[in-house]
Design a protein around this nucleic acid. Structure first.
Length: 552
RNA sequence: GCGCCCUUAGCUCAGUUGGAUUAGAGCGACUGACUACGAAUCAGUAGGCCACAGGUUCGAAUCCUGUAGGGCGCGCCA
């Protein structure tokens, strides 16, 4: 178990014991109040809790008094805590015992690539649907942010024991697809592309392919299907080169193969909550206003054709009827789709899936070259593709930049900075720490210093007494809390920040203390320490989908 | 007009479930540090009425209300 969880367990025991001393037990400590913060200031200990602030008013105590009562009930665990203090207005500060810190280092080395993983999600099934761009053109940079976010969240959830399935939803029918087919057909025939058609160069490319390969086209449908297939191929390739591989590709048209979708939806929407779908003016509406939407939404037009929303509802139902049942369905959308959130949630609510559907929005990406903004306009057809950025800055920098910021904040992606192979560039900063460690091991090997099970003794690790060494181990020990934070907030950027901080603590240690020295035992201890650093760096970078080079 | 997101140092941003006399990084500016493991590094200095005004709280950059500014979205389009 992690140091963090061990302390939480002690704390919960103590709080319950303290509460039992009061006659009135009506105050309930909610479980989300049991968390520890990592104080920036050393004098506040390694972990701190503000739990005493919550019950204080109820028990008519000051937070300080209550904190003391809780601390008095803390089970003694000398191997875990060296000191516990009540401080400030009522904080409880925990100072972790050195022995426990060495033990943690031993665990990192023993668990290797499995360190930081937990069983928090064992037995739970999560599905993440992301990117899902229409196959009407190549992916652009914005899709890249969604791809990086979804893929990394999937990797993190997997590390926490969840069963994760990544899915891409393909809109392969409907008006836009017809327009795509018509656009390609027009190009092929050397005619003008229709007014509302797709005019990008890639349309020409597809038309050229058709004539070069002498593919037989009998009607518009053939052009459409060929275009979709070709573009999907590009998308798949772009994603692969970006490190993203989907488990499943779900095609919209399959929703219409199970029968009359109108009848199916009417039946399902009206089964448990009667009259959630109704007909008016010849069209079919869903009563999303019952669940917070601004207006009811049409799912079948007066002429009988389904809207996009009809497919989306059918798709949502499909997901929730799968076996084994999904515990959570995550959708990752660009913020430009946020207007769609209320109606989706309304439908989830009326079908009883409200708690299980999580929609994550990420803000838009603007590309820069230094100070210059790179113009992007979908309307004018001049958008920068993911492929272009990938070719220019590489996968590692690209993913890192997308994952550096919280999805909530708009992202300025500076191509010039991402391309720089220098310290300005945070990707290289983290990777450099990893490469540097590899190179120290080469140096150590020259001096006959090798790490093995024999050299990994607790007495050896106990030689690590310097402040920078202790800081480094403590930083490493927070890895799994960081992963849990990413999962709880559905936000991978905590990990990106953490890796930069870990690299900083390592570089600082490195410049202050020599690793390979005459002192053989100390050298071995420090080699174990930096081995642990490289393990966590590698694991963290893996989760971000970024390489951890041995040299660069 | 309505809704969602945002506004923190010259620039790009952290500050997650409210917390602890000094609100943190990086870049840029200025000072220093390699005759032993990679200076793609490290240490330090300067730089901020946390957009503005109220409110809730023992405590607010964080929550609520309003104002200003920016982005996005509001179709029987996708």
């Amino acid at each position: 178990m992690t140091i963090y969880n061990e302390i939480i367990n002690l704390l919960e025991t103590a709080v319950k014991a303290a509460a039992a001393d009061f006659k009135d037990m009506t105050f309930k400590w909610s479980s989300d109040k049991f968390f520890l913060t990592l104080p920036g200031n050393e004098k506040f200990g390694d972990y701190a809790s503000n739990i005493a602030f919550y019950g204080a008013a109820f028990y008519e105590k000051t937070p300080r008094e209550l904190a003391q009562l809780i601390v008095d009930k803390l089970p003694q665990d000398k191997g875990l805590l060296a000191k516990v203090e009540v401080a400030g207005n009522g904080f409880i500060n925990f100072f972790v015992a050195k022995e426990r810190i060495y033990k943690e280092l031993g665990e990192i080395l023993a668990l290797h690539g499995k360190y930081g993983q937990t069983s928090a999600g064992v037995g739970k099934h999560i599905q993440i649907e992301f990117v899902s761009a229409n196959p009407t053109g190549p992916l652009h940079v914005g899709h890249g942010r969604g791809a990086a976010t979804g893929d990394t969240l999937a990797r993190i959830f997997k590390a926490l024991g969840y069963d994760v399935q990544k899915e891409y939803y393909v809109n392969n029918i409907g008006n836009q697809m017809n327009i795509l087919g018509q656009s390609v057909q027009a190009r092929f025939a050397g005619k003008e592309i229709p007014e509302d058609g797709y005019k990008g160069n890639y349309i020409k490319e597809i038309a050229r392919q058709i004539s070069n390969d002498k593919i037989q086209m009998t009607n518009e449908d053939d052009f459409r299907e060929y275009a979709i297939k070709t573009i999907l191929g590009w998308i798949k390739k772009d994603l692969e080169d970006f490190g993203v591989v989907f488990d499943d590709w779900f095609f919209e048209n399959t929703l219409y193969k199970q029968g009359d979708l109108k009848q199916i939806l009417l039946e399902k929407l009206n089964r448990e909550y009667p009259a959630k779908a109704y007909e008016a003016d010849g069209a079919v509406f869903v009563k999303t206003t019952d669940f917070g939407d601004d207006k009811d939404r049409v799912i079948f037009r007066a002429d009988g054709r389904p809207t996009y929303f009809a497919s989306d509802i059918a798709y949502l139902i499909d997901k929730f009827e799968r076996k084994p049942p999904l515990d959570q369905v995550i959708n990752i959308w660009g913020a430009d789709h946020h207007g769609y959130v209320p109606r989706m949630q309304a439908v989830a609510s009326m079908l009883g899936y409200k708690e299980k559907l999580k929609i994550i929005l990420y803000q838009l990406v603007s590309l820069k070259r230094g100070k210059e903004t790179v113009p992007m306009s979908t309307r004018a057809g001049e958008f920068v593709t993911l492929r272009q950025v990938l070719d220019e800055v590489g996968k590692d920098a690209c993913r890192f930049f997308f994952l550096m910021r919280s999805p909530d904040s708009a992202l300025d992606f500076d191509l010039e900075l991402a391309k720089k192979h220098s310290s300005d560039n945070p990707v290289y900063y983290v990777q450099y720490a990893h490469a540097r460690i590899s190179s120290v091991f080469k140096e150590a090997a020259k001096n006959g210093l090798m790490l093995d099970a024999v050299s990994l003794k607790i007495e050896t690790l106990e030689l690590l007494k310097e402040q920078e060494e202790m800081q480094l181990i403590k930083k490493l020990a927070n890895f799994s809390k960081i992963l849990a934070d990413c999962a709880r907030t559905y936000d991978p950027h905590w990990l990106t920040i953490y890796l930069q901080e870990l690299a900083t603590v390592f570089h600082n240690f490195y410049t202050r203390h020599r690793i390979v020295t005459e002192n053989r035992e100390l050298s071995l201890a420090r080699l174990h320490l930096i081995k642990a650093v490289s393990i966590v760096l590698k694991d963290g970078l893996d989760l971000l989908g970024i390489s951890a080079p041995e040299k660069m």
